[in-house]
Structure formats: C-alpha cells, structure tokens
Amino acid sequence: MAEEVEIRGAGSTAKIRGVVAVPVLSIITLGIYWWVWYYKINREMADLGKATGRTEELGDSPGTSLLAVTLGALVIVPAIISLIHTFQRIQALQRFTQAGEPLNGWLGVVMYLVFSPVLQGYMQSGLNGAWQHQAQGGTLTPAPVGVTEPAPIAP
C-alpha cells in the first residue's frame, strides 16, 4: 500500500508509491491507472508549488496535463510535450527538496522509446525520494530571485 506523506504548507498529501506497482497496475488496467497516476503526481507537485510560490517550476494545472495526454494524444505532440514538462517538474521538485541527483533526462528518453512502463517506475522513484526527503523535514531551497516567497512553512 502507498504511504502518504504531508506536503508541507499545502494541507494535502503526496503518496510514496511502489516503483514496480505503478507500471504493473498501468498494464493490468490497460492504461487507466496510468491516467490516474499522471493526474495525481501532477496535482501533488502543483500543491507544493502553490504552497511555496513555485508554480512556474512545479506546475499549477494537473487537469491540463491530463487532458494533453488523453485527448491531446490524438495529435501526439501535446502528449509528448506534457510528458516532457512533467519529467522536468519532477527534476525541479528534486532540486527544490534537495533530494539527491535529479532524474537523467536522456535516460528517460531511452526508457520511453524502449519500454515506456519502465519510465513510470523511474519517474516514481524520483518522486518518492523527493517526497520522503521533504516529509522528513529536509530543507527546501529558497525561491528564485524575484519570486516572492509566502510565509515560512512549519515542518
């Protein structure tokens, strides 16, 4: 079962999901779980972005991301752009939470081209590290210059 951790300052939670469970459930449900997972990870990052004033880096509209990979997939380009932006958001989340080395973008491309369910596990592993670090009271990097930071977040 997925462990829930509180997103500091957001009043919501993020899930530490199994890196193998995500692609397996996506395959078993014929892709339906993938859509649910994609929406939820984008919502979790958007919640932290809103709480910290980092919506530019962490996103602010998980519904738009989901729409791009569902209906936008008919045109192909919006789905690929949304996937790239989600990957970049995960990297930004990792930098922001200082949870180690960010995911490797080139490795992500290879995984996507060879066997995309492996990419889901890879993305989830990056999210898990960031959420665990943040939940354990890890430091968050300050907002970029010119961005007004909301009130400090209590651990």
Results as ranks from 00 to 15, higher is better:
F87A: 15
L127Q: 13
Q91N: 09
V109H: 08
G100Q: 05
T52C: 09
A151T: 10
V69W: 13
Y39L: 03
T86L: 08
T97Q: 10
Y33F: 15
R8Y: 02
P102N: 00
P23R: 00
Q136E: 15
N104W: 01
H133L: 09
R43E: 13
W34H: 12
K40I: 04
L107H: 12
G126E: 07
F96N: 08
R17D: 02
L140H: 10
P144K: 04
P144E: 05
A151Y: 11
Q134P: 01
I153C: 05
L30M: 09
A46C: 05
L67A: 15
Y38F: 02
G100C: 04
A51T: 12
S65V: 06
I41S: 06
E149A: 15
T52P: 14
G53R: 03
A79K: 03
L103N: 09
T52M: 13
I32S: 11
A143G: 12
G31W: 02
W37Y: 11
S65F: 12
P102C: 07
L107D: 03
S65K: 13
T97I: 02
M45T: 00
W35T: 03
E44D: 06
R17F: 12
P152I: 04
L67M: 07
G63C: 01
S82F: 01
I90P: 08
P102L: 06
Y122E: 06
G129E: 04
S65M: 14
I76L: 15
R43W: 08
W106V: 13
G9F: 05
V114Y: 07
Q91A: 00
G31H: 05
T148P: 11
P117R: 12
A79D: 02
Q132A: 12
T70Y: 07
M1R: 10
Q120S: 07
V114M: 06
V75G: 01
A99T: 09
